[in-house]
Design a protein around this nucleic acid. Structure first.
Length: 570
RNA sequence: GGGCCUGUAGCUCAACGGUUAGAGCAGAGCGCUCAUAACGCUUUGGUUGGGGGUUCAAAUCCCUCCGGGCCUACCA
């Protein structure tokens, strides 16, 4: 048994996430966490809402709520949705927690003491009407290059030219539209990542097994142009972790907060501390996951995220904890995902295009989404959600191959012997062959789960389900029964035993159906099959079960068409 | 502009210098009748985007052209 620390990228607080966000970190990390728990490992699986930054403040204003209240409400919304998808976080925290405030401030002090933070005074655009400094992209105006009237202060979306906000002609606030803007000097803290470039580069070089998507992005940032640039880690905002606090080694930073990308990854650690607090545990209980001087050396730490998050997880967060000089656990493996598209285009919040997590749960049970999304996860490339593919995947894999297998076995048994495992006959060569086949597939499945190749794992799992149908078809107990009921009983006994096996193997992907299968078979405590022949004899003659309801209802063509129309957007 | 990823069967993907390029879905045929008209077997289908090169051997490595996508540091 080993200890495995798993973090899923933090969903941003400003709204409900769509299926692309779900499949890019939360869902695969959950399948991985469930698998590792099933294999008997000690798992700490952490997620949280990422609550700071300008978009949160604007979303709160739009909702007409104070930002703290907005975030608290939206945290609950996201928590409920996560529960609905059966995401098995050990703790779902908040980056606005007291733990994160304290730890973020602590690490900043350590970085300062190590000479890795410096004060820089820079000029930024201030909006008098909005009463706030504006990030570059929240300033709009006419592009000096192409004349496009809605160019943003960081880049013109029309001609793609990189801009400085002061380049814009007739600049205005994207928040209020006000043109009452001025440039003010403001002091900020910068993280001197450039001083850590060689150290980070050498560390990345040791990660030979990381996905190329992960390392190539890190290398690009390390070596592009002048190399890794220092990064401002504070902002002129109200909502966030205050930069000025008792014991801060700097002054004059009142009214500023740490930049969201500085405090958000720290929340991985802080959320584990929140977990300890919530369960009446001591600091030592969370530190053994995170402090290498407190037992975390043998922890295997895996992060899941979409590819947009890679620079922060490969560079700035490691720079933060390495630079602190303290003994924090560094990530061992970064699993990054590409994008999920919707019917050939992008998911779009503003255009109402695509499916959002709350809607998905209203439409179909979570297992349906989990299965389709994980068996089509964008691991090697962007992938495409289509209703047709979703319908085909759910109907074929879940309803026909797995669900119908459970139905045909239990109903046949019920009709001939009643709802208990029949006695008589013995397993023979055919059963040995199935055990051998499943054993081979199971090894492959486990290998793919260990290396976090989720798509390949689902393909093996499906093949294991298929093996049951192949066996039944060849053994044909309905024919054998007429001549030799004892032999038929052995066949059915074997097939019934496949059901709890399938339930346990499938649990990482379809936990609700797995639970329903175990309940029906009266086999709730079934463990991972370390010994397949034993597992196939777990349900002994006379063991009572109940024939389950249909496990997966098929998606009708009319239903699919209605959903296609409903979510087409404009 | 720069960098990275990518293009394989009608569709979604696998194969990561080594037999005859594989699987699921879709299509065709046969079988079974326990089951959610489900299941099983057989089968059609590819000039691996185009062109050139390296090699005994290339989907795989190199060059080039064409197409798709992502990132480019103040959205997160």
């Amino acid at each position: 048994m080993s200890r495995i620390l798993i973090t899923s990228a933090l969903p941003y607080i400003n709204g409900i996430k769509h299926l692309g966000n779900l499949v890019g970190s939360q869902l695969p990390s959950d399948a991985y966490a469930r698998y590792m728990r099933a294999r008997g490992h000690e798992v700490m699986y952490i997620c949280a809402t990422d609550e700071h930054g300008t978009p949160a403040e604007l979303a709160a204003a739009k909702a007409g709520k104070p930002v703290a209240e907005f975030c608290a409400d939206m945290w609950q919304v996201q928590k409920d949705i996560a529960d609905g998808f059966r995401l098995s976080f050990d703790h779902f925290g908040r980056s606005s927690s007291d733990r994160n405030h304290k730890l973020t401030q602590h690490l900043a002090v350590k970085l300062w003491e190590a000479g890795l933070i410096e004060e820089i005074t820079e000029s930024q655009v201030y909006s008098n009407a909005d009463g706030r400094f504006l990030p570059d992209r929240y300033i709009e105006g006419t592009c000096p290059n192409c004349g496009f009237e809605n160019a943003r202060g960081d880049q013109c979306e029309n001609c793609t030219k990189q801009l400085d906000p002061t380049d814009l002609i007739n600049p205005r606030s994207a928040v209020s539209g006000s043109t009452d803007l001025e440039v003010r000097d403001t002091k900020h803290l910068y993280l001197r990542q450039s001083k850590m470039r060689d150290q980070l580069d050498a560390w990345i070089d040791t990660k030979k097994d990381w996905p190329i998507l992960t390392t190539s992005i890190a290398k690009k940032w390390l070596h592009d142009g002048d190399g890794l640039q220092d990064r401002g880690i504070t902002r002129d905002l109200n909502w966030g972790v205050p930069v000025q606090f008792d014991g801060a080694p700097w002054s004059g930073m009142d009214g500023k907060v740490f930049y969201v990308w500085f405090d958000a990854p720290i929340e991985y650690i802080a959320a584990t501390a929140e977990w300890a607090d919530a369960h009446g545990k001591s600091d030592a209980d969370w530190e053994r996951w995170w402090r290498t001087d407190a037992g975390a050396d043998d922890v295997h730490y895996v992060q899941f995220m979409g590819k947009d998050n890679v620079p922060f997880h490969t560079l700035s967060f490691p720079a933060t904890i390495m630079g602190s000089g303290e003994d924090w656990k560094l990530v061992d493996f970064i699993k990054s995902y590409n994008w999920l598209n919707y019917e050939g285009g992008k998911f779009s919040t503003s255009q109402g295009r695509g499916v959002f997590m709350d809607q998905a749960l209203e439409i179909m049970p979570s297992d349906y989404w989990r299965w389709w999304l994980l068996s089509n996860a964008p691991e090697s490339n962007d992938s495409d959600f289509t209703w047709e593919s979703f319908q085909a995947g759910v109907n074929k894999d879940l309803a026909d191959v797995l669900g119908n297998f459970v139905s045909r076995v239990t109903k046949f048994c019920r009709s001939k012997w009643g709802e208990e495992v029949p006695a008589g006959g013995e397993y023979g060569a055919a059963e040995d062959a199935v055990i051998a086949e499943i054993g081979k597939r199971l090894t492959a499945y486990q290998t793919h789960m260990e290396s976090i190749e989720i798509r390949k794992a689902t393909a093996e799992l499906r093949a294991i389900w298929v093996a049951g149908n192949e066996y039944l078809q060849a053994a044909a107990p309905w024919s054998v029964y007429k001549e030799d009921p004892e032999a038929a009983a052995a066949i059915v006994r074997f097939a019934l035993n496949l059901i709890p096996l399938y339930a346990v193997l499938s649990e990482p992907f379809i936990p609700d159906a797995a639970a329903a299968m175990l309940t029906a078979m009266n086999a709730e405590g079934t463990k991972w099959p370390d010994d397949l022949p034993n597992a196939m004899a777990a349900l002994a003659p006379g063991h009572a079960f109940t024939t389950p309801d249909v496990l997966f209802t098929k998606i009708a063509d009319e239903t699919r068409e209605a959903l296609e129309a409903r979510f087409a957007g404009e």
